Amino acid sequence: MTGPQHPSPADRSDADGVEAHACPKCEAQPGSPCRSRGGAVASAYHTRRFTRVARLKKALRVPTPADRAPGRPWRPGTPPPAPVDPALPSADIRIGYARCSTLGQELDSQLDALAGHGIPRDKIFAEKISTRIRVRPKFEEALRTAREVKAHAPHCRVIFTVYEMKRLGRDAAELTALADHLTAHGLILEMLAGPLPGIYDPTGPGKLLFAFFAAMAETERENVRESTLEGLDAAARKGKHGGRPPVITDDMLHTMLRRRAGGESVEQIQPDLFIPTGKRKGHNPSVASIYRALTEHAKREAYPDAVEQAHADFAASRTATVPEPRPDSPDRASL
């Protein structure tokens, strides 16, 4: 039994030469084999098509190579790349993108790295925005600019450059979709640092590596999130709560209670109170803040057990999978 027939290099070369032209008979466009009347891939190229190739003008028949699947249902192929005009410049064009998550972080190191890589400042798009926000204006503008540059200069390599992978996003699906989007528009992705520095090759091992490191970046983000939640929970158990400092401190509350007991109104007490810390340090607290603090104090005084039980239930829900029924609950009584 003979094995599968593989087209020889000469057959493939002839086929590539023929498919560089459109077929005047079956109207197959460049990059596609000829098709038969039944809608299948023709077993041989039509004469009027292959005679356009100088070396095949005297040939009687040019068969369709086996890798073009003759006899199978016809599908349009990929058109060959347009010929490059040697008079046009062929330099790489880079579009840079820099991002950090919070207003407190700085972009200077990323901007310097991108500018040092030869990207003009007017081709670098930067913003301070979290990756959790799906629509990032400067990121969308950078992608749109890269696509426009590629459309106006198809002979150039347009490279979308970032400092590292996590500047693009930390969700594996989002990163992979972005890589596919760049590939579909003929753009190249480049990273200057991180686990995958250099130009990203969208085919072969490059694609596998990119998918792997994208998944690793997502895992790293989840680990950081879990560690942060555990740290906040441990601090809360020690009585340390995050966020801005309270406007009404315990000392201020005692002063308010003493003066209220003496018959003074909130409006009379408010001008003598000053916020000790925070952005409004040295200012008077608002009347609403004072009333809110007095209301919360009254609730704690009226229902001290309920407040303590609420804190205990919250702590138990963070540590136990299934909460135990309370001693006085109907479930416990029925056991």
Rank of each mutant, 00 (worst) to 15 (best):
P325R: 00
L143I: 11
L273A: 01
P245A: 05
R99L: 00
P285D: 04
R68W: 14
E296C: 12
A54M: 12
H283A: 12
Q268R: 05
Q270A: 13
T47W: 10
C34P: 01
A87V: 10
A306K: 15
H241N: 09
L229G: 11
P79F: 01
T2D: 12
P24I: 00
T277N: 04
H297K: 04
A91V: 06
A184M: 02
E190P: 10
P30S: 07
A214V: 03
I95D: 02
E27Y: 09
D85P: 03
K25Y: 06
M191F: 04
A302D: 14
R49Q: 06
R121P: 14
K58Q: 09
F210C: 05
H311F: 14
L229N: 07
T277D: 02
T255H: 09
V287A: 09
P81K: 02
M216Q: 11
F314H: 10
Y291A: 08
G17C: 11
S334H: 14
Y303D: 15
P80Y: 00
G262F: 08
T176A: 06
D14K: 12
E264N: 02
P197L: 05
P325T: 00
G206R: 02
S286Y: 05
A28S: 06
D272W: 12
P24G: 00
A126W: 06
V18K: 01
A40V: 08
P137K: 02
F210P: 03
L178Y: 06
I95Y: 02
P325E: 01
R221C: 09
Y97A: 00
D201L: 08
P246Y: 03
E301K: 12
A298Q: 14
I275S: 01
G262D: 12
K25C: 12
H185I: 01
H254L: 09
